[in-house]
């Protein structure tokens, strides 16, 4: 699996599910950030795409699960401009701003799970 292919898949499903062009672009870009992180920091992982009801909202849900090194300080990682690599450090906080619901969970040496949702 590569970033480009999964991203195309996200856009395809976002469109199918009825999201407008702006929301399609937002969720695809947010997901792209998470995929890149998985490849960059965790040597890949699993992606789940789903539609469901969350807190009375119909939602398009994408969950990224990896078994990489995990994030030591999530609060830091969520700050604009913070990167342990040579990235811009806007991936996680930017992704959060692009979606309606953002959930991150990480355990050092076990892995990271990030779930994003866009209301339909």
């Amino acid at each position: 699996m590569d970033v480009v292919k999964v991203r195309q898949l996200v856009r395809y499903h976002a469109k199918e599910i009825g999201l407008g062009i702006v929301d399609q672009t937002r969720i695809t870009t947010a997901a792209s950030e998470l995929f890149r992180n998985m490849f960059l920091y965790a040597e890949g992982g699993d992606v789940l795409m789903d539609a469901g009801i969350y807190n009375d909202h119909k939602a398009f849900i994408i969950t990224c699960i990896d078994r990489g090194p995990g994030i030591e300080d999530i609060e830091m990682a969520m700050k604009d401009g913070y990167s342990t690599g040579d990235g811009m450090g806007y991936g996680l906080p930017g992704s959060k701003r692009l979606v309606d619901d953002f959930y991150i969970e990480s355990t050092v040496n076990q892995g990271t799970t990030v779930r994003i949702m866009k209301w339909i």
Partner: peptide, 14 residues
């Protein structure tokens, strides 16, 4: 840069 991409870039914070 399409309007959708412009908005997205702004939200990303770049």
């Amino acid at each position: 840069i399409s309007p959708a991409i412009a908005q997205t870039i702004v939200h990303l914070g770049i």
